[in-house]
Structure formats: C-alpha cells, structure tokens
Simulated scan of single mutants.
Amino acid sequence: MPDSTKPPQDVDPLRTHGGFADLVGYTLETWEPDLAEVTLTVDARHLNRSGVMHGGMLTTLVDTACGYCGCHAPKGETPKRAFTLSLTTNFVGAAQHGQRLVARARRTGGGKSVFFADCEVRDQDGRMIGTGQGTFKYITLRK
C-alpha cells in the first residue's frame, strides 16, 4: 500500500499546483518576498447548503496565501516550506457563485524558524469577504 504522507514520485513537491490546489481550484497569482496573492473563482463546488461560499473555502484561501507569503525564494533557489501553527479567520461578507476572490497576504514578522502573516480576501469589486492571521513554522522537506 502506498504511503499517503509522501507525494507520488512523479509529483514535484516544489510546484505551486497539484494535489489540494487542483482539487479546490485556487491559483497562486503573485509570489514575491513577503507577499502572495491567491485567486479563486467561486464555483458550485465551493458553496454551502445556503448557496454561499463555504467558510472552509475562505479559511483555505487565507491559510494558503499566508503560507506562501513567508516562503518566497529568488528565482533558481528552492522555495522555503512551512506548516501552519495557528490560524484565525474572520468572516466579513458572503461570496456568491461566479465571484472572483483575491486573497492577499503579507508576512508581518518572524525569524529563522517562525513567521507571522496577515491576509485580506476581497471580491472583484474590492468588497471585503474576510480576513485572517496566521503563525507558520518553517520546515525542511525530506526526500
């Protein structure tokens, strides 16, 4: 039986798509030092039983953007990796089917082993959908 904790051998663990990103449908649009933007167009699969975007989707966008913003590396260098230690999500508005969302996160501090990030999620009209803050720990991938 394959080990589900390791990526398949044909999957590059450093790429920005694959696995959960493909399942959910978000895209990393901007990735710079201390900044990341993740986008998502709300689809029927993202809705809850009330017909608005499920809160887990907002949390996913916040977590993903915050995680990326602290892990950028210059071109040619291996990006850093991190896992979430703590995440707070604030639900401000409801996203509807068809809306394009942008989760913009900035690294706000930290050091060699831990970093902090803040995120805002807005729709295509600039309307706030939610915010979040996270604490992340840098890790080293093992081969």
Rank of each mutant, 00 (worst) to 15 (best):
M1K: 09
P2H: 09
P2M: 05
S4V: 14
T5R: 12
K6W: 04
P7A: 13
V11S: 04
V11W: 06
V11I: 13
L14N: 15
T16W: 05
H17W: 03
G18D: 01
G19Q: 02
G19F: 07
D22I: 01
D22N: 03
L23K: 06
L23G: 05
G25N: 05
Y26A: 02
T27K: 13
E29H: 05
E29V: 03
T30M: 02
W31G: 04
E32V: 04
P33T: 02
D34K: 05
D34G: 06
L40R: 09
L40P: 13
T41A: 13
A44H: 06
R45V: 15
H46L: 12
L47I: 12
R49H: 12
S50V: 11
S50K: 11
G51W: 08
G51H: 13
G51A: 13
G51Q: 12
V52Q: 08
H54D: 15
G55H: 08
G55C: 11
G55M: 11
G55K: 11
G56T: 14
L58S: 10
T59N: 13
V62P: 03
D63S: 12
D63E: 15
T64L: 07
A65G: 05
A65R: 01
Y68P: 03
C69H: 07
C69Q: 04
C69W: 05
G70Y: 04
H72Y: 11
A73Y: 12
A73N: 12
A73D: 10
T78N: 08
A82C: 15
L85V: 14
L85Q: 09
L85Y: 03
S86K: 01
S86Q: 07
L87E: 10
N90G: 14
N90R: 11
V92N: 08
G93V: 12
A94Q: 11
A94C: 09
A95I: 12
Q96P: 10
Q96A: 15
Q96E: 15
R100A: 08
R106P: 00
R106L: 07
G109T: 04
G109P: 02
S113D: 13
V114I: 15
F115A: 03
F116K: 04
A117F: 01
A117T: 00
A117D: 06
D118H: 02
D118Q: 02
D118Y: 06
C119S: 08
V121D: 07
R122W: 00
Q124H: 14
D125T: 15
R127Q: 14
I129Q: 00
I129E: 04
G132Y: 04
Q133E: 03
G134R: 06
Y138C: 06
L141P: 10
L141S: 07
K143W: 09
